[in-house]
Design a binder for these strands. Sequence first.
DNA 1: ATAACTGCAAAAGTTTTGCTACCAA
DNA 2: TTGGTAGCAAAACTTTTGCAGTTAT
Lengths: 146, 146
Amino acid sequence: MSNNSTSSKGRFEDLKKALKSSGLKLTRQRKAVLNALANSDDHPDANQLHRRTQAIDASVSLATVYRTMTELENNGVIHRLSFQGEPARFEAADAPHHDHIIDIDTGDVVEFQSEKIELLQAEIARELGYDVIHHRLELYCSKSSK
Amino acid sequence: MSNNSTSSKGRFEDLKKALKSSGLKLTRQRKAVLNALANSDDHPDANQLHRRTQAIDASVSLATVYRTMTELENNGVIHRLSFQGEPARFEAADAPHHDHIIDIDTGDVVEFQSEKIELLQAEIARELGYDVIHHRLELYCSKSSK
DNA sequence: ATAACTGCAAAAGTTTTGCTACCAA
DNA sequence: TTGGTAGCAAAACTTTTGCAGTTAT
């Protein structure tokens, strides 16, 4: 089994596998969408993903991109990111959990991870009588001067 | 000066003051919008705020609600919250900084604050060469069982 | 065979905007 | 007086959906 997220080929195989285990049919169109997503190392929105998909298979419609993303999201195969004031972006869920830094000058997205913050979150929620099901943490940043 | 966010009257006065110091005109319509916002202790979206505003002054249009919120946001008087998959919500910015817990069963929003998390965020960003300008932290939770 | 899937176009929902008239300062 | 504002309706955008035909299994 390829958990190898370094090769886009491996990511494509993983996505196909995840799609099939979700009970979804592997259609020509979905193959193209997954391929486009596997080859994206940024976080494309629906239109970008649609354009990249069409470069592989020009017949794929935007509706299919949306429908596929919705299905895959419901099955935990991809994450839908909705940053402030932007259309939703998508990323494969194969990578370990992480949060995002958004460069407010360039729009670049950097991923990071902090066990400490996760623990603090759970602790805070617990004090208020809640369990954290999932969370969103985004740092809107500019490059530091020095 | 009333920094007293316990009384809605005080909050209304504070909002009016903030609007005027932003160089905006205090119109009849804006008075109604600010009044509606000052009397909201939840986080209304544009439609809700519009309805509450119309209860005060029926002539106010939805466009004016949006335009007013955009102006006030640009001047730091209010915050625009955009939770996952929902239309934007608004809150007065007079309260001290805080983040949000969203109850995924009821939609309730609880505010919390954690100095520790803020410090960790800054530290993480710094290690990656960034300064945090602002951030978003949302915990999507359900009531804890015990 | 047949239930799932697709493209297309239309609809839905949120937010913005052009325009003409109006009003706060 | 006059530049900022308002309402209205239309437009802009993102996302979803009804429908009739197609396809993977």
